[in-house]
């Protein structure tokens, strides 16, 4: 699967990419919401986005809202991957249109579990 990783931390991006590549996925990266959105306006096939919350220029929540408002990409499965652990934050993410929520830190087991849940949840909303 082709997965877009949106995170301003290079360390976080490569950590996640390493796990996903090992599981046979292909990864592309963006370091903030604006860059991700640009990438998503192209014709490129992207099947899932992993989105950090706190990023410069456009944060993860704004990115999720923007994607849901975009007629061509609104069905993109989106998984928040963040160190924000307050329940209020989780609720906000769902309101904005995120499909699932993964709290940092995590291992590859939790990551693949949450990816499955995000895909299933998006499939269920159609």
């Amino acid at each position: 699967m082709k997965i877009l990783i949106v995170d301003d931390s290079l360390a976080a991006r490569s950590f996640i990419a390493r796990m996903l590549t090992k599981q046979g996925h292909e990864c592309v990266m963006a370091s903030h919401g604006g860059e991700a959105l640009e990438r998503l306006t192209s014709e490129e096939v992207i099947e899932l986005a992993l989105v950090d919350w706190n990023m410069p220029f456009m944060n993860g929540l704004e990115l999720v809202k923007a994607v849901r408002a975009n007629s061509r990409r609104r069905d993109l499965p989106m998984l928040m991957v963040t160190s924000e652990c307050e329940l209020e934050r989780v609720a906000l993410a769902f309101e904005a249109g995120a499909d699932e929520y993964l709290m940092k830190p995590f291992t590859d087991v939790e990551l693949s579990s949450k990816i499955q849940l995000a895909l299933a949840s998006r499939a269920g909303t159609k």
Binding site: L87, V90, F94, Y101, L102, F106, E110, S113, L117
Partner: peptide, 13 residues
């Protein structure tokens, strides 16, 4: 946190 990240949909959390 690891245990709740594993298998539990965040909506149920």
């Amino acid at each position: 946190q690891l245990e709740i990240n594993r298998g539990l949909p965040a909506r149920l959390l």
